[in-house]
Write a protein that binds this DNA or RNA. Sequence first.
RNA 1: GGAAAGAUGUCCGAGUGGUUUAAGGAGCACGCCUGGAAAGCGUGUGUACGCCUAAAGCGUACCGCGGGUUCGAAUCCCGCUCUUUCCGCCA
Length: 423
Amino acid sequence: MLTLPYIRQNKDEVLERLKVKHFMHLTLIDEVIELDEKRRQIQKQCDDIKAQQNQISKQIGQLFAQGKKEEAEQKKAESATLKDIAEALIKELDTIEHAIHDKLVLIPNVPHSSVPQGKTAEDNTVVKEGGKKPDLFPNPLPHWELAKKLDIIDFELGVKIAGAGFPVYKGKGAKLERSLINFFLDNAIQAGYQEIIPPIVINKESGFGTGQLPDKDGQMYHVPLDELYLIPTAEVPITNLYRDVILEEKDLPIKNCGYTPCFRREAGSYGAHVRGLNRLHQFDKIEIVQVTKPEDSYRALQEMCDYVESLLIKLELPYRILLLCGGDMSFASAKTYDFEVYSAAQDKWLEVSSVSNFETFQSNRLKLRYKSADKKNELAHTLNGSALGMARVVAALIENNQTEDAHIEIPTCLRTYTGFDRI
RNA sequence: GGAAAGAUGUCCGAGUGGUUUAAGGAGCACGCCUGGAAAGCGUGUGUACGCCUAAAGCGUACCGCGGGUUCGAAUCCCGCUCUUUCCGCCA
């Protein structure tokens, strides 16, 4: 959520930048500013009347103490009239505040000035490509076929237990998954991130804090009996650790990482591109989260990108880094880099990480502030990224590292974790 | 699921309708004192919004949350949430 003072003071810039995001309801900006002016005016009236009331009440107390009953009664009547006026104003104020809030939450974050124009994923800029596409033999198997042949991932069994998109990992498949989790966590800890094991259900407040609610209500699994949601990413519980918190400047930057399963309803996606591990309702992911001072957040974004890239290099996966264009960015993000790995048998780039700077968009919702050197409370910046999303990494590893006799070579960096070189 | 108790500032803690403008203590910051420190003394010490270009200053709201009674509520009434303890159930 953008802050009102920011919108008020940078109206033209906000409008200009929201166009980069292809945001349609630009009139909301003027509506919000207008409502805010009205709000301030009414609040002034309201506060003045309340001040009078408070004074009169105090006088009444004194008059009673002095035994001046009649005068006190007179004052009572006076105060009662003021009360009626104040009540009407409070009601009006309440209505306006709700209206402002309802409009404010519909306005997306403004993209950073370095975000390129563009409408769809086609318009994203490839900023870097790395690794080497494998030289595979003819007709390599897509991962779902090879995984079935080796009996390491069972999609049908998952359907029986839960439904489509809930795969069952077996034997060496399960061990590979767990090895990746440990590999990613150990690397993150090495890079200075403190590990967190958060709850994997969240309440409404948390969903609102990071921006999933009300925007993506239908994309999360909901437990109505207890009003809880299954997390779509560890970003939600980990970032919400700092909801309603005023940090000390010396605490920053905060660097957290965490492994959780992630749950996504993926309502509306179907077809060939969701086969196998490409798109799941449940998958494992290690998330990295940073909370920084405003002036440090873009350096942190770069640091996080470098870190994610280092993982892909260690895993020897061919990758590319995309700078998302305005139209393809998420609602809450100011700048996002996507990381894709090349999955050879499918001949497809699969997104395995998305690293974003939210600037103050989340912290404004979270009321996540820090006390700056001059003792002022300022909104911190929040960032997060996947490091990494498991399922698609597994898909690429299976496809790229397959041998002609239908086995899978384990990358060197994982072998101490798996305890085996091939599947 | 049943019963009871509780929720006050950074923390502890007092407060059952009007000098509470939330006592008192601790912590923290600054100053005095000191050769330096401790002790002692003094001062200050939350959040949000508004008025003001800003600062200073002032106003309003906030004692778990939401309503209500009253001229006036931390205090009385109603609803809710959470915590703790006991019982039940249980990996």
